[in-house]
Design a protein around this nucleic acid. Structure first.
Length: 492
RNA sequence: GGCGCCAUCGUCUAGCGGUUAGGACGCCGGCCUCUCAAGCCGGUAACACGGGUUCGAUUCCCGUUGGCGCUACCA
């Protein structure tokens, strides 16, 4: 095994393959591994399983790393940070696998197999017709020595199979508990292909052993791989890690979440204005609960309270509604200044403000954010909510115009308001409220009757933050000119 | 088919032999109110089924049914 200093305690890893974007299921797996490592004070390792060169890409790798960082996860060993037990790209670890395979062949734990893919397919296809289950028939294990020699010398292509021993293999799973597999159910799996490259089930074992991985949290779709990996680890003279198999994340229809079934990439949530804290919070609660009551957890609180043993064994459906609610809760809890910071990229992205706002402009922006208040479910909602504050022209919603401005008396109402506002001593919300309320009383109108036409006039729609704050923020000039413009839309 | 995992409101879950089965999302209604949100109050809705064990099962055991996963020279 490679030398180097090793962190005491748990060594936990997350090992994505860069063959697609990180989606919520993978994100949750990464999170649980990270939480386990951080909770125990151990090391969190990121390893990239990029042996499938046909499907792995640099773009996916970068996106995964970016998404993990955005989510708030960090790693002690892995890409970008290095570590004593690298390299952390599987594609760079080829040197470890060959000798390990030779060792297994030498001590009889593995053997060469000359069966071709076609032969295997043929035999496999025949099995069910004959009412048998297919398992590799060990034809090449039972080869006479001379025959094996002959084939080897003839240069016949050979794969290497692991010889599954008799007996049973017990997996003491952190989440599932004790699971027992009868070894007779297991195939003599191929650990090295005809071209010499090692397969996943072998590579993972060697890497975990060499990296000193002690704990692995992964999807339960790997559960049936586990006895094979445990057996290989032991044949290699190592101690397999402790596993915890996470029930899969389901889509709303109860099917497993996958890339082509509504699985949304983590990056997609970032782009639509979700807070990483909210997504982390939601993902943590998807299959784990602290006391069944608390819903909002700070990241460090999750680290403190998370226990793998309490993870549910039941597959959990991903609920976008609840995630949205949680995002809203998180946005709401942000102080105005920070909320403004977070909303900034969405505003610039939409061209509503220029990058690098400062000074008075920044102050005004904070006031806008404050005024919009709890009306943001996602950060991206800001573009819709703040548009009329920031854009020079109002976009009039035709339904709102029809419902309010095109009604009889609207023009008169606006004209009256124009006069009042022109004469307003100042444009503070309190002042505006005072004079507008007084005006309503004078004219015998309900406040609502008076306010809605102005609202549509200055915001372009029937729904907006409080009208007095809105007018105040807009200022006298803009308010008056917009009312003037809007009078052109009335029926008079 | 074989092997494995799972089973409490529509969804996420609490429960660890005795509870009016709790919370959250959603939905519905009300209050508040200048609109929309938010907030507050209330409501809706669950132990898959059948056997055991037990004085007593949501809880423990077995089975049935159902869902899901794996069954590659993919990872």
């Amino acid at each position: 095994m490679a030398g180097g200093r090793v962190v005491e305690g748990m060594r936990v890893r997350f090992a994505p393959s860069p063959t697609g974007f990180l989606h919520v299921g993978g994100g949750r797996t990464a999170l649980y591994n990270w939480l386990l490592a951080r909770h125990s004070g151990g090391a969190f390792i990121l390893r990239i399983e990029d042996t499938d060169t046909a499907r792995s890409t640099q773009e996916y790798y970068q996106a995964i790393v970016e998404d993990l960082k955005w989510l708030g996860l960090d790693w002690d060993e892995g890409p970008e940070v290095g570590g004593p037990r690298g390299p952390y790209f599987q594609s760079e670890r080829a040197g470890s696998y060959g000798p390990a395979i030779e060792r297994l062949i030498a001590d009889g734990s593995a053997y060469r197999c000359f069966c071709t893919k076609e032969e295997l397919e043929e035999r496999r296809g025949r099995a069910p017709k004959e009412g048998r289950d297919w398992r590799y028939d060990r034809r090449c294990l039972e080869l006479a020595d001379e025959e094996r020699e002959r084939l080897l010398k003839s240069g016949a292509p050979a794969s290497v199979r692991f010889r599954v021993p008799d007996g049973a293999t017990v997996v003491d799973d952190l989440i599932l508990g004790r699971v027992e597999f009868d070894n007779s159910e297991l195939d003599d799996l191929v650990i090295a292909r005809t071209d010499g490259t090692p397969t996943y089930n072998f590579v993972v074992v060697v890497d975990d052993l060499e990296m000193g991985v002690t704990h692995v949290i992964r999807g339960s779709d790997h559960l049936s791989n586990t006895p094979k990996q445990v057996l290989i680890a032991r044949a290699l003279g190592g101690t397999p890690p402790t596993y915890g198999h996470l029930p899969l994340v389901l889509a709303q229809d109860g099917k497993v979440l996958s890339k082509r079934r509504g699985a949304v990439a983590i990056g997609e949530y970032r782009r639509s204005g979700y807070l990483p804290e909210a997504l982390m919070n939601y993902l943590a609660l998807l299959g784990w609960a602290y006391d069944g009551v608390q819903e909002i957890f700070q990241p460090d609180e999750l680290v403190e309270k998370f226990e793998v043993g309490k993870v549910s064994r039941k597959p959990a459906a991903f609920d976008p509604d609840k995630l949205l609610w949680m995002n809203e809760q998180w946005i709401k809890s942000l102080p105005v200044s920070e909320r403004t910071d977070r909303v900034l990229p969405f505003l610039t992205g939409e061209g509503l403000i220029e990058a690098g706002v400062a000074g008075e402009e920044r102050d005004r922006l904070e006031k806008i954010v404050e005024t919009i208040g709890d009306r943001l479910k996602t950060l991206n909602d800001i573009t819709d909510q703040a548009g009329f504050f920031l854009a020079s022209d109002v976009i009039y919603d035709s339904m709102s115009v029809k419902k309010v401005l095109a009604k009889p008396g609207a023009d008169e109402t606006l004209a009256g308001l124009q006069r009042i506002l022109e004469g307003a001593p100042d444009f503070e919300p309190e002042t505006l409220e005072r004079i507008i309320r007084a005006h309503a009383q004078e004219r015998g109108l309900s406040l609502g009757k008076l306010v809605q036409p102005v609202r549509v006039a200055v915001t372009g729609r029937t729904a907006s933050p409080g009208i007095f704050e809105t007018l105040s923020l807009l200022g006298r000039d803009k308010t008056l000119s917009r009312i003037e413009d809007a009078r052109g839309l009335t029926n008079e």
